[in-house]
């Protein structure tokens, strides 16, 4: 294949109910850096129904062009409809790189597209760089439950595609004066292929706080032990204006819901302060939180691996520390 025919960095800008998702801005910000290195453009693909009102915001984060595919077929995400839409963009413009969020949508859409295009796809990347010599995309991702990092390239196929977990790439500062254009893109759908019918979409109030966007996380592990223990963590979180999260052990035990789980199979977080309370720090957990700005760990076991990443490590019983700290902070913050 003639690789010189492929250029520009494309981002699938995920929206839900018309709201552009944070991961789309994160990816556009990263795409800008990659495209500047290559001297190429950033194009955001915004697909949906009635989605154009916020299209310009993608320009503010770094897109040169927003391709808006506004079609009733795309009102809600269904695999085949979205695959046809993005496939027609890719085959028309031949991008060099295409990025997707590693969400339930991106992780469903991207592999379907990769197989249709016959190209490679690297999942859940935590780092994207352009190689100095070949100008190709180097995609780094965790493997073996976060125990190993692998750098992957796609040397002989185009586009180079990857999914990136939400919260991993920092967002740029938006610039409302950035120049760029929103262009309509029409897709001729092959409706005969729409074999799966969407009956309904149900939004569950999962008490969903997005822990990935919290500035302060009060996170508990095995050392917290039980629901009552987490109520104490909640009291601390309330005082300091944070959210409660947890390690996998507490989710597996049914004490905490999955959307509060930090780590390789949960969420990646990078808050200003991460309290690791009674968390030993399995490598899978560290993979999800070690980018936090400040990590404060409290654990009875002075050999707990969590101390290897903590800025402040306290060897003490968290059940004694947490209530005292909560009371003290009430006075400090008042």
């Amino acid at each position: 294949m003639d690789k010189s025919q492929y250029k520009d960095v494309y981002v699938f800008a995920e929206q839900r109910d018309g709201a552009i998702q944070s991961v789309a801005y994160e990816l556009v910000s990263k795409a800008r850096v990659l495209a500047d290195t290559l001297g190429e453009k950033v194009v955001a693909i915004l697909a949906g129904s009635g989605i154009k009102k916020d299209a310009k915001s993608l320009i503010a984060y770094g897109a040169d062009t927003v391709l808006a595919i506004d079609d009733a077929n795309l009102k809600e995400y269904v695999t085949e409809q979205y695959t046809q839409a993005v496939y027609s963009v890719i085959t028309k413009f031949n991008p060099s790189i295409v990025l997707f969020g590693a969400t339930t949508i991106g992780r469903d859409l991207a592999p379907r597209l990769a197989a249709r295009l016959g190209t490679g796809l690297t999942a859940d990347c935590t780092k994207l760089e352009i190689s100095e010599d070949t100008k190709e995309l180097q995609m780094t991702r965790p493997a073996f439950g976060g125990n190993l990092m692998a750098t992957i390239m796609c040397p002989n196929h185009r586009p180079q595609m990857s999914t990136v977990r939400p919260g991993v790439m920092p967002k740029a500062d938006p610039d409302a004066n950035r120049k760029g254009e929103v262009v309509d893109f029409k897709v001729d759908f092959d409706e005969a292929k729409f074999a799966v019918k969407l009956v309904k979409t149900v939004k569950e109030k999962k008490n969903t706080v997005d822990i990935a966007s919290a500035k302060i996380l009060v996170s508990g592990g095995r050392g917290v032990g039980c629901k009552e223990g987490f109520e104490k963590l909640q009291a601390l979180a309330t005082v300091i204006g944070g959210e409660v999260s947890s390690s996998r052990a507490m989710v597996d035990a049914g004490i905490m819901p999955h959307d509060r789980q930090v780590g390789q199979t949960g969420k990646t977080v990078r808050p200003a302060v991460y309290f690791a309370l009674g968390i030993s720090g399995a490598i899978q957990h560290l993979a999800g939180m070690e980018e936090s700005e400040t990590i404060i760990a409290v654990n009875k076991d002075k050999f707990a691996p969590i101390f290897s990443v903590a800025d402040l490590g306290i060897v003490c019983d968290l059940n004694k520390v947490v209530p005292l700290l909560t009371e003290r902070l009430k006075k400090e913050i008042k």
Binding site: G118, T119, G120, L121, T122, Q138, P142, A143, G146, N147, L148, M149, A150, T151, I152, M153, C154, P155, N156, H157, I283, L286, A287, E290, K302, F307, S308, V309, A310, D311, L312, G313, I314, V315, C316, K320
Partner: peptide, 22 residues
């Protein structure tokens, strides 16, 4: 299409202070 060009164990950041206190 994809090739693993490098694999490595993650470098953890340097630990900070650790205190055994009440």
């Amino acid at each position: 299409p994809t090739k693993v060009v490098k694999s490595f164990t993650k470098e953890l950041k340097q630990p900070g202070e650790i205190h055994e206190v009440d």
